[in-house]
Design a protein around this nucleic acid. Structure first.
Lengths: 404, 404
DNA sequence: TGAGTTTGTGCCGCAACTAAACAAACTGCG
DNA sequence: CGCAGTTTGTTTAGTTGCGGCACAAACTCA
């Protein structure tokens, strides 16, 4: 028991501290081969080999011993690394104004299974979360996969350390609902194993995009997105979400972007919230806004379908200018090296990318000396994948401890 | 050579990876005894003992074996840890509009020796830096201490990775001056050993206050300060300076704090820069501003001496309201758990702390749920100490490598 | 004086590496 | 086809930083 039993046994027992970083590299696709893993980790081939073998033994990754096709380079082809398809999953859930959804997400941000989106969001968080977790548990039973945790994305700031939803404005939940506790309770009741986490949807979008989408490789990533109403922001610094001392960072909705603008419920005027959200776009374009839960779709459709209409185009340009002013302010404060936009902001960027980039470069102090790249979000269901990232984090930090 | 020679030899060879964290704990005063060091590092007593012994052997700290007085607690008294007075120093320099200064700074932020401040700053950075480094080298020769690096604080944003001063507005240096290279060259020419670093003065003030002053123990520290003209900001996140992807973060001077305010050279109106700096205070108080390089002193003296004067008081209150608006905007974006103010902002805070705290709490979104503590800077020569921190950083990261 | 408490130290062992030599799997050239 | 050259994987033998444990030391308190 205490001696060195066999060679295999010895290998399985080593490689602890580099295990997490190695898994994260494979998870984010930055280590496609063992050779790359070796250089990215900054360790010897022996260590990288042992670490990869242990991750394979844990059922997390796959090591392709017979690649056959590694054209171009000389030398012995490297074994390919990939996340294991039949490996464990986490339960991810998201609640938006236009419905809620549950999914199983594997390593690499791969959505294994998902429920159809439900459209009605009830006013009682416990009821909604009970239903969404129940749907996720059903998916899990059907799949037969191992579950190592659960994550939830909500359209509200989530206060630390208590985990309450401070402003679930777009859904009819009471402010201050203890969403983290409710979600944890639902997860436990459904018999799902592993810890449960809850976070703000824009934060989780940023995290997902940083790991698997348009934010890959960015050092300091700023993400700004609209829902149906209002604007949210998020910041990923050196690969870690920055949510502030009490989870309330990047509440960017009340930056002033138009001194003569619309009054805002915060007491100011011309806040980013009321000047660049879907409702602002529709009213500026002189269209009748539809029901609250479809404003984002209505605005996006209008922007894409009728960009030739002068009123629509004018409204888009006005919003782009306001958004650019807000982004420039954030650039001056945060100095990110990449910005990604979601929701209607993403549509505005795609409608006239040059205009937005010009405004940001013009109004940010250091815009001339190399302006910041501004990109659209690329992932489908990004806040769902972000919720999964939250749940995967303990495994990425210490695979042995998290799977024990 | 290869075997275990003696017990002492074995001890000297161990304890590498925890060495840096341990030194940082002693350096910042968070590990007054070996027992505290043990728990703060999260290691066993054996390891902490070995680490402390090695730091002592390196000539960095002192381990008091005979304390004699540890009243209150039971049990064997712990050995006291402190930085070694006769240990190595770094050369720290600062350049401000009202003069430049050099100093020797030891571990713990202790100023060992300093030159008298020189008042005339020439337009040629090479000349100024040559003089200040020369003065520092003279101090060093006189002291006979070992020098392990050099740090410089300048009143300008310093771009990364090239190390150029982007806006040395208050001193007559050309924008884009390669201050880091110039400083490095001067340091090498003066025969000073160790690497040379250059940073923005407000950034370095924040770093110094976080390690040795009013920011001690803060998780996310925001620092805002005025010089003679304009406003600077800095952010320390989890103990590390956040200066953005290209060193340009926290350029907070162009936050809008008064939509109907003074025009600013940035193209906007009512920026923090032009609404809350010493010149704004003097003109609001209807006083004749003196020479540029003494605006800060003039404004501070006026505020302290004539606060009873209605015009002065009104000006102070107006500036406090504007500053509060700016700080509230920053709180919404950064969610720090402490704010410290320097320059005239410090004086404004001390003139009416309640008013400023009330404005910030009222205008920041989450002010009600526990407002952010706002404190004045406490360290004398804080940007000088901050420049020293920059130079100490390699030693704190890896004492063995840095002293080799 | 002795029990209880807390801290420092020596010793053993081990987990997690590195270094170096060797084996394997490819490319490309003659 | 065979052989050099290149890159990658594996094995073996250290090295090292640290935990665990036992014990000694230095105090307080009864």
């Amino acid at each position: 028991m205490n001696g060195k039993a066999t060679t295999t046994r010895t290998k399985l027992e080593r490689g602890r501290s580099a295990l997490g970083p190695a898994l994260e590299l494979v998870h984010t696709g930055r280590a496609p081969t063992r050779a790359v893993l070796t250089s990215e980790l900054g360790v010897t081939r022996a260590t990288a080999g042992a670490v990869a073998a242990e991750l394979e033994a844990l059922g997390l990754i796959r090591v392709d011993s017979s690649p056959g096709s590694a054209a171009g380079s000389q030398g012995r082809p490297s074994h390919r690394l990939s996340v294991l398809e039949a490996g464990p999953v986490v339960l991810a859930a998201q609640v938006h104004a236009d419905g809620f959804r549950a999914a199983l997400v594997g390593l690499g941000g791969r959505i294994v299974a998902t429920t159809p989106g439900c459209v009605a969001v009830m006013a009682d968080p416990a009821q909604v979360l009970g239903e969404v977790v129940g749907a996720g548990a059903a998916l899990l039973r059907a799949s037969g996969l191992r579950c190592v945790g659960a994550g939830l994305a909500v359209p509200s700031a989530v206060a630390e350390p208590d985990g309450t939803a401070l402003n679930p404005l777009h859904i009819a939940w009471p402010a201050g609902s203890p969403v983290r506790d409710i979600f944890s309770a639902c997860v436990r009741e459904a018999g799902i194993t592993g810890p449960a986490f809850t976070g703000n949807d824009v934060n989780l979008t940023a995290l997902a995009e940083h790991r698997h989408g348009a934010g890959r490789g960015a050092q300091h990533l700023l993400c700004v997105a609209t829902g149906h109403r209002g604007v949210g922001g998020a910041l990923v610094l050196d690969g870690r979400l920055h949510s502030g001392s009490s989870g309330l960072a990047l509440e960017v909705g009340h930056l002033t972007v138009n001194p003569e603008g619309r009054p805002c419920h915060c007491g100011g005027r011309g806040c980013l919230d009321v000047e660049t959200d879907p409702l602002a776009f529709l009213t500026t374009a002189r269209r009748e806004p539809g029901p609250e839960e479809s404003l984002l779709k209505q605005a996006g459709d209008l922007l894409r379908a009728e960009y030739d209409d002068p009123a629509v185009r004018h409204a888009a340009e006005e919003l782009i200018d306001r958004l650019g002013l807000g982004l420039a302010g954030l650039v001056n404060i945060l100095n990110p090296d990449r910005i990604i936009l979601g929701g209607l902001h993403r549509d505005l960027l795609e409608a006239d990318p040059e205009r937005l980039r010009a405004v940001v470069a013009d109004r940010s102090l250091w815009g001339r000396s190399g302006s910041v790249p501004i990109l659209p979000c690329t992932l489908a269901h990004n806040s769902l994948v972000g919720a999964a990232e939250l749940a995967w984090q303990p495994v990425l930090d210490d695979p042995l401890a998290a799977l024990a």
